[in-house]
Design a protein around this nucleic acid. Structure first.
Length: 284
DNA sequence: AAAAGCCCCTGGACGC
DNA sequence: TGCGTCCAGGGGCTTT
């Protein structure tokens, strides 16, 4: 469930408490999540010190002093919960699959009912060849993601823009909710062909610029709000985010379009097997 | 090569 | 209260 802003919120929460700490023990309470846990995950991480916690797209990259990187994807329902040394849980909850015990007594549990999450262990200097990271497009909040970059990626594409923006090779970190919101803010129909947004002869379109601008804007707002919440996402501290109240189209089918002067009604369609919410009046 | 479809999994909401 | 059905924010993999 977590999209980029939520993962960013989790990253900050984890970093705040775990940075500089040494991992004493990792308890893998099942064989794996979506994929089996890497063979050496436990032994390579135990005893290591966490030197930084970064985010790439929706992945958490927990970097060790040994040069190894612990990659974590939260899937749809992955959640970390942190316990201070003096508030260790007496027993573990259902779906607590990974328990990380730090030398200072801090405990982090990874809970994931649907087990769509996954973990990988990246050897030193092998980040750029990792199967999850190698083909990712640029970070939407970086300067690399601009109108020219987007148009270049969309050039000649015959799929709907909604599908393209969900493709992590085009731009990395957007999910279903934020793509709906971005297209609504940008006034672009989710059904519009990607190639029509790319423009012709290297000339970009106003729609592409709107999409880029609104992408950065909505992500910044959501990160600011501490990530959004729908049903079962909580930040690493257990606090809920409030950005979900700011969704203008997601989950609002049947409601009046919230755009000033627009008299449309939000509708719900299915694209690529997933729900798209949009206003056919102001999104063209 | 690109696009479309399938699948992994549990739980909550809803209808009867 | 107890079913059955549908749906969920992701992405890797296979098929066309």
């Amino acid at each position: 469930m977590p999209e980029l802003p939520e993962v960013e919120t989790v990253r900050k929460g984890l970093a705040k408490q775990l940075l500089g700490g040494a991992i004493e023990n990792i308890d893998l309470r099942r064989e794996g999540l979506r994929f089996p846990f890497p063979q050496e995950l436990k032994e390579r991480l135990e005893g290591s010190v966490i030197v930084s916690i970064d985010r790439r797209a929706k992945y958490l990259l927990i970097r060790m002093d040994s040069g190894f990187v612990w990659l974590v994807h939260l899937g749809m329902t992955g959640k970390f919960t942190l316990y201070h040394p003096n508030e260790k849980p007496s027993e573990f909850a259902k779906h607590d699959h990974v328990i990380v015990s730090m030398k200072d007594g801090t405990v982090a549990t990874y809970n994931d009912p649907r087990r769509f999450g996954y973990m990988d262990l990246i050897k030193p200097d092998e980040e750029w060849t990792n199967r999850h990271l190698a083909r990712l497009g640029c970070e939407p909040l970086s300067d690399d993601f601009d109108t020219a970059n987007l148009c270049d990626k969309l050039k000649g594409k015959k799929n709907p823009i909604k599908i393209a923006l969900l493709d992590q090779r085009i731009v990395a970190g957007l999910g279903n909710i934020y793509v709906c919101e971005i297209l609504h803010r940008a006034g672009v129909s989710p059904r519009r062909l990607s190639s029509s947004i790319a423009g012709k002869n290297g000339k970009s379109t106003k729609m592409a610029k709107k999409i880029v601008d609104e992408t950065k804007q909505v992500l910044r707002e959501a990160i600011e709000a501490g990530g959004s919440t729908i049903s079962d996402f909580a930040t690493v501290d257990g606090d809920l985010g409030y950005f979900s109240h700011s969704f203008t189209v997601y989950g609002r089918d049947g409601e009046d379009c919230s755009k000033t002067n627009c008299v449309g009604i939000v509708s719900k369609i299915v694209q690529g097997g997933r729900s798209t919410f949009f206003c056919s009046k102001c999104q063209r």
